[in-house]
Simulated assay, not measured.
Amino acid sequence: MDVKALTENGVTANESVTPNPPTKRNSGFWKSVLQQKYLYLMSLPFVIWVFIFSYVPLWGWLMAFQNYKPKKSFTEQKWVGLDNFKELFHDERFYLVLRNTLAMSLLGLIFGFVVPILFAVMLNELRGNVFKRTVQTVSYLPHFVSWVVVGGIVYKTLSIDGGIVNDLLIWLNVIDEPIQFMAKAKMFWGVLTVADLWKETGWNAIIYLAAITGIDKELYEAAKVDGAGRIKQMFNITLPGIRTTITVLLIMSIGHLVGIGFEKQFQLSNNMVTDYSEVLDMYALKYGIQIARFSYGTAISMFTSVVSVILLLVANGVMKKVTKESIM
Score class of each variant (00 low, 15 high):
residue 179 I to Y: 13
residue 201 T to F: 04
residue 155 Y to M: 15
residue 209 L to D: 04
residue 148 V to D: 13
residue 133 R to S: 11
residue 138 V to A: 14
residue 204 N to G: 04
residue 125 E to H: 07
residue 197 L to M: 09
residue 156 K to Y: 15
residue 201 T to D: 04
residue 235 F to D: 10
residue 202 G to R: 00
residue 155 Y to D: 13
residue 219 L to G: 02
residue 218 E to S: 13
residue 131 F to G: 02
residue 160 I to V: 15
residue 133 R to W: 02
residue 160 I to N: 14
residue 225 V to Y: 09
residue 179 I to R: 07
residue 146 S to Y: 12
residue 132 K to A: 05
residue 128 G to S: 14
residue 148 V to H: 14
residue 218 E to A: 10
residue 235 F to Q: 12
residue 163 G to K: 05
residue 108 G to V: 01
residue 188 F to S: 02
residue 159 S to L: 10
residue 144 F to S: 11
residue 199 K to F: 05
residue 135 V to A: 03
residue 129 N to C: 12
residue 115 V to P: 04
residue 115 V to S: 00
residue 161 D to E: 15
residue 151 G to A: 13
residue 118 L to H: 03
residue 133 R to L: 04
residue 133 R to V: 03
residue 138 V to K: 05
residue 196 D to F: 01
residue 230 R to S: 13
residue 230 R to F: 04
residue 194 V to A: 07
residue 112 G to V: 05
residue 211 A to Y: 05
residue 227 G to C: 06
residue 129 N to V: 15
residue 148 V to E: 14
residue 158 L to K: 02
residue 157 T to N: 10
residue 199 K to S: 02
residue 234 M to P: 03
residue 209 L to V: 07
residue 121 V to Y: 08
residue 158 L to H: 09
residue 148 V to F: 15
residue 183 A to Y: 12
residue 161 D to Y: 14
residue 197 L to P: 01
residue 217 K to Y: 06
residue 158 L to A: 08
residue 202 G to N: 03
residue 128 G to T: 12
residue 138 V to N: 01
residue 147 W to L: 06
residue 168 L to N: 14
residue 173 N to R: 14
residue 226 D to V: 08
residue 230 R to N: 11
residue 159 S to F: 02
residue 120 A to H: 01
residue 222 A to C: 14
residue 120 A to M: 00
residue 176 D to L: 08
residue 117 I to M: 01
residue 106 L to V: 15
residue 231 I to N: 09
residue 110 I to N: 04
residue 234 M to Y: 06
